[in-house]
Design a protein around this nucleic acid. Structure first.
Length: 374
DNA sequence: CATCCGTGGTA
DNA sequence: TTACCAAGGAT
């Protein structure tokens, strides 16, 4: 049975063949992704563009492949090189990132692009060099080093953790099991194809060794897998229960000028939705609820109820009462600005704010990466 | 090591 | 519907 401690020694079991079987499966069943150089092309000497590898890896942090695709294409089209991204304004990058979440990534992306551009557009080709850059942590540094620079880096993401804990029946809960997982990956990674090995493990985790209902019958590693013998591979990886999310309340105020312009303001650079734009709201990021009526409106106006919207953040849920007022003043109050009429989807608005605006102005917003008009 | 940080999809 | 979770990083 699985051990709860680290007494298992990595050298106890032979691993010959695991990487080979995994890579053979990858050669035949890999996903075709916009940022990826497929194994056949890689073998014939095609090298991945480090800019694309980096951009995709940052976007993929805690974000699904399907959500990333459209944003990756939009960024690449608008900023084809890291120098181009370095020449962009942080504000434009935030606007382009709107809707993808974890907005500090966008700020760090721009900061990192500046650093790379200052080096002539050349990325560091070592794990340590990459790790020192903003927005690049242990995982991303290893992934770029392995995929773009063929370094034998130990790439461990959520997929790898799941595959490895099942393969070796590691029952120690995460994150305590991370050192053991790293040790197992370290002895599996092949020196000649570290990038493909990393991507193969992630593809396996995404399509076969899934969190729920893994398709073990189709798995190229079923003969190597310890968890499958237990009859309940889904048991792994073991994670501690997460604390339940508190529910907060507040109000949002959508002021609309007669030409359709919406009154916005910019949020502080740090913290929740840092650096993004918003319609004025009552407090709701504090531990306590904000006011839900018009008492706390940013200024006097004919505020009318426009329904309410719900939104779920990482660590709390939010219900926002939405009010709309049609106003006739031209000069924005101190700290506010008017969005360009009809261009609300071009602002750096997080999804929760688009929901509020949509409630006040049905049909005005749309999802996905913003595409600039000509 | 724990907490904070978005969003959308799935069973 | 609730609950989980996705190619994590910064502090």
């Amino acid at each position: 049975m699985a051990s709860l401690t680290s007494t298992r020694k990595p050298a106890d079991r032979p691993v010959t063949g695991i990487a080979d079987r995994l890579l053979a499966w990858y050669d035949a069943h890999h996903r075709d992704l916009p940022w990826r150089v497929p194994p056949r092309e890689l073998a014939s000497g095609v090298r991945p563009d480090p800019y694309r590898v980096w951009l995709s890896e940052v976007m993929l942090q805690q974000t699904t492949v399907e959500a990333v695709k459209a944003y990756f294409q939009a960024f690449l089209e608008r900023w084809p090189t890291v120098q181009a991204l370095g020449a962009a304004s942080t504000d434009d990058v935030m606007k382009a990132w709107a809707g993808l979440g974890y907005y500090s990534r966008a700020r760090n992306l721009k900061a990192c692009a500046d650093r790379i551009a200052a080096r002539g557009g050349v990325f560091p080709d070592t794990e340590d060099g990459l790790r020192a850059l903003p927005g690049i942590g242990a995982y991303t540094a290893a992934a770029i080093a392995a995929i773009a620079f063929v370094r034998p880096a130990v790439v461990v993401d959520g997929n790898v953790e799941r595959v490895i804990t099942r393969l070796f029946s590691i029952a120690m809960p995460l994150p305590a099991a991370k050192p053991d997982i790293r040790a197992e990956v370290e002895r599996l990674v092949p020196a000649d194809r570290p990038g493909d090995f990393a991507q193969a493990t992630m593809d396996l985790g995404a399509t076969i060794c899934t969190p729920r209902r893994p398709r073990c019958m189709l798995c190229p590693l079923r003969q190597d897998c310890s968890a499958i013998l237990s009859g309940d591979p889904e048991f792994y990886p073991v994670k501690l229960a997460k604390p339940e999310k508190p529910q907060r309340k507040g109000a949002a105020f959508v002021a609309i000028r007669n030409d359709g312009a919406v009154l916005l303001r910019k949020r502080p650079e740090k913290g929740l939705l840092g650096g993004m734009s918003e319609v004025p709201t009552t407090g709701w990021t504090a531990r306590i609820d904000g006011a839900t009526g018009t008492d706390a409106a940013p200024f006097a106006a004919n505020w009318r109820p426009a329904g309410s919207i719900g939104h779920v953040f990482t660590h709390f849920g939010l219900e926002l009462a939405v009010y709309r007022a049609d106003v006739d003043f031209t000069a924005p109050p101190q700290g506010f600005f008017w969005s360009r009429p009809g261009w609300i989807n071009d602002e750096a608005l997080p999804t929760v704010m688009k929901k509020a605006i949509e409630a006040a102005m049905p049909g005005s917003t749309q999802k996905g990466p913003h595409k600039r008009k000509a």
